[in-house]
Simulated scan of single mutants.
Amino acid sequence: MHAPERAIPAPAGAREESLRFLLQTAADSGVSMIATRPDGDGERWLGQAWPFPSPFQVSVCTVPVGDGVDRVEARARRSLERLGLPRGDALLISNAADLAGTEGRALWDRLLALKDRGLYRRIGFCATVEDGPALLARRFQPDVVQLKCNVLDQRAQHSGVLSELASLDVAIHASSVFADGWLFMSGEALPPEMHRHAPTLSRIRRRLAEARVDPMQATLAYALGLPEVSAVVASVASAAELRAVVAAAHAPTPALDWAALQLEPATAAGAGSLRGRISSAA
């Protein structure tokens, strides 16, 4: 996932060249999927910078359903125009709560119609553990669920959500794999709501240092090692960041006690214990 908001400000020409270099680096590195968001100009910038022929499958997110399902459908079509693509790989409802609302069924029917017309090959939704993704999957039968899951928050694995989604033949894309970068921050840099976790994060960083494992390597190894997960989504702002991610992803899988690296115990009974604490994509 391209994160232009984190890129170093640059004139338009330099920005476009930087994005072309990022995409070419991704193609050369074997990255096969680009996840996009409908906010800002990110889609348009990507549409102007694809390598030709493009080797990527593109995942598109919807706008919120608050303005109506007509707006969602129109914007999903517009996303393809901005990206310069005749069709996309996946169209994902950006917030699973939209499916749980009064317009949930009508919204899903619109996505089904776009899929039937061949504009998107697969449809699904983005979710957290709190959204009850397995229950929603049983109701709507998506092709894809993008689920927030990382080494600090292992609830999706230990509560059985991943295995249940896999049993429904749903492709799982793991997002928020870097958990807002908390494992990379010192205690003083943590946001106020995370201060109580500073000692635990310090202990986890010490465990990794003793094992001579880089935090980025650990976070990616955990997500890539989940057998139910078919894709890992990581945001990058530059080719340099992408090269670092790819190098960490290709490093040998470390022999770590993954359960000992959780921020809090994750069990089926306590699956909601981190509500709202590890939810941002990073």
Rank of each mutant, 00 (worst) to 15 (best):
M1V: 06
R6D: 14
P11Q: 06
A12Q: 14
R15I: 05
E17Y: 02
E17H: 06
R20N: 10
F21L: 14
L22V: 00
L23Y: 04
L23C: 02
A27R: 00
S29I: 07
G30A: 00
G30I: 03
G30K: 00
A35V: 15
P38E: 01
P38W: 05
G40H: 06
D41A: 15
G42E: 05
E43D: 04
W45A: 15
W45F: 11
L46Y: 04
A49Q: 07
W50L: 13
W50T: 08
W50N: 10
F56Y: 00
V58P: 11
C61T: 15
T62G: 04
P64H: 10
P64E: 09
V65W: 06
G66V: 14
D70N: 13
A76H: 06
A76R: 06
S79M: 10
E81N: 12
E81W: 14
G84Q: 05
L85M: 14
R87F: 12
R87N: 09
L91E: 07
L92C: 02
L92W: 03
L92G: 00
N95F: 11
A106I: 01
D109Y: 01
D109K: 11
R110Y: 08
R110E: 13
L111A: 02
K115L: 02
G118E: 03
R121L: 09
R122T: 08
I123H: 03
G124D: 04
A127W: 00
V129N: 11
E130I: 10
A137H: 03
K148D: 05
V151P: 00
L152N: 06
D153Q: 12
Q154D: 03
Q157Y: 08
H158D: 11
V161A: 07
L162K: 06
L165T: 03
L168D: 02
H173E: 08
A174Y: 00
A174H: 07
S175A: 13
F178C: 12
D180R: 15
G181W: 06
L183D: 07
L183N: 09
F184R: 13
G187M: 08
E188D: 15
A189K: 15
L190G: 13
E193T: 14
T200G: 13
R203Y: 10
L208N: 04
A211S: 13
A211C: 11
M216C: 07
M216P: 06
M216Y: 02
A218Q: 08
Y222W: 11
G225L: 07
G225Y: 02
P227Q: 06
E228S: 11
V229Y: 03
S230N: 01
S230C: 07
V232W: 01
V233K: 03
A234N: 12
V236L: 08
S238V: 04
S238A: 12
A239P: 09
L242V: 08
V246T: 11
A249H: 05
P254V: 10
P254Y: 09
P254N: 08
W258S: 07
A260K: 03
E264H: 04
A268G: 11
G272R: 10
G272N: 12
S273W: 01
S273I: 14
R275C: 08
R275F: 13
S280N: 12
A281F: 05
